[in-house]
């Protein structure tokens, strides 16, 4: 258990990091908003992969569901952003909840394959339903009302940035609280030894369904944010490739730690961004090399590296 001031400091880290990034990249706020939104999605993935110990390649299904739900909601129901976020989160949670009932009966590779299959099915449905979703052309044509009736969406992405950062902050603070509750502890215990938790009377299946649904809701929330700030939803938001990309970010940062999700997203997107602007033709090679190096020398991800350095400095054993 961390001490009270440390915990408060941890809570303030997200807005602080946001301000530092804003100072570093004052004219790239759309890019920063993208980082914040991706960070929310990677946090939600960490719940499933890191905390519940379930490797998935279908997490984009919930992100895309949230994005399409928020887009359709803005187009046909009401273009108010905050209720749009709720619509997106609900869509993500419904997709996750419904599929979790089936998914959580599978394990290991079967589970992984089923997550891929489910996201493929959803991708095909959205791709076929051209009249509703726009198919490959994407869903567009909606505009958003000002947030809380005050702040307008601007093309520089100023509002998009603050709005996404605020949501990221709330999600991060709540997840930190959640992970130390009995529920959070049980989820982690199930990851470490599901058989034992079961024999002690813990409800393994139910906990997994709940955490997967919650994670889906957060992924849907990220999708909704993306839909509202970009104002176009593309099929790629549902793709398995995207699921794999966010998994790479999480592994890069370190699974099973909320910090890992944030650090991984930030480092991956910033490197990606620099590499792609320096050499738009060969940058992928560079990203690949960095990943290989990290996996070889820091198997626990970047946050594990930070923890090791911290332990070495303070002379304590690494956690």
């Amino acid at each position: 258990m961390t001490s009270f001031p440390t915990r408060i400091l941890g809570d303030l880290a997200v807005p602080l990091a946001g301000l530092i990034l804003l100072a570093l990249y004052p004219s790239q706020q759309a890019f920063l908003a993208q980082i914040a939104i991706t960070a929310i999605l990677v946090l939600s993935l960490d719940l499933v992969v890191g905390f519940a110990g379930l490797a998935t390649l279908g997490h984009a299904a919930m992100f895309g569901a949230g994005a399409y739900a928020a887009g359709l909601y803005a187009l046909h129901v009401w273009s108010e952003p905050l209720t749009g976020l709720i619509a997106g989160a609900l869509a993500g949670a419904v997709v996750a909840g419904a599929t979790a009932l089936m998914l959580m009966r599978a394990h290991g590779l079967t589970f992984l394959m089923m997550t891929v299959a489910i996201s493929q099915v959803l991708y095909e449905i959205v791709s076929k339903a051209r009249d509703v979703t726009g198919g490959d052309d994407g869903l567009f044509g909606f505009t958003m009302q000002p947030v809380l009736g005050v702040w307008e969406f601007d093309f520089f992405g100023k509002l998009a940035f603050w709005y996404s950062l605020a949501v990221l902050w709330i999600v991060f603070v709540l997840l930190r609280r959640l992970m130390v509750t009995p529920f959070g502890q049980t989820v982690r215990a199930i990851r470490d030894d599901a058989g034992r938790v079961g024999s002690l009377g813990g409800r393994v299946y139910r906990h997994r369904v709940v955490v997967y649904t919650l994670s889906g809701g957060i992924a849907g929330l990220a999708g909704a944010l993306s839909a509202q700030t970009v104002q176009v939803v593309g099929l790629s938001s549902l793709s398995v490739t995207y699921s794999a990309e966010i998994l790479v970010m999480l592994v890069l940062g370190g699974t099973g730690r909320l910090w890992g999700a944030l650090v991984g997203t930030l480092v991956f997107t910033v490197i990606h961004h620099y590499a792609a602007s320096i050499d738009p033709v060969r940058w992928m090679l560079f990203i690949g090399l960095i990943l290989v190096v990290i996996v070889l020398f820091l198997p626990g991800g970047l946050t594990r590296g930070i923890a090791l350095i911290h332990a070495w400095l303070t002379g304590r054993r690494a956690p």
Partner: peptide, 18 residues
């Protein structure tokens, strides 16, 4: 020159804005 490999509206908007 800015690289955008695939359909990705969020990235397209961020690149244009930048």
């Amino acid at each position: 020159w800015r690289d955008l490999q695939k359909p990705d509206p969020g990235q397209a908007r961020a690149l244009a804005q930048e």
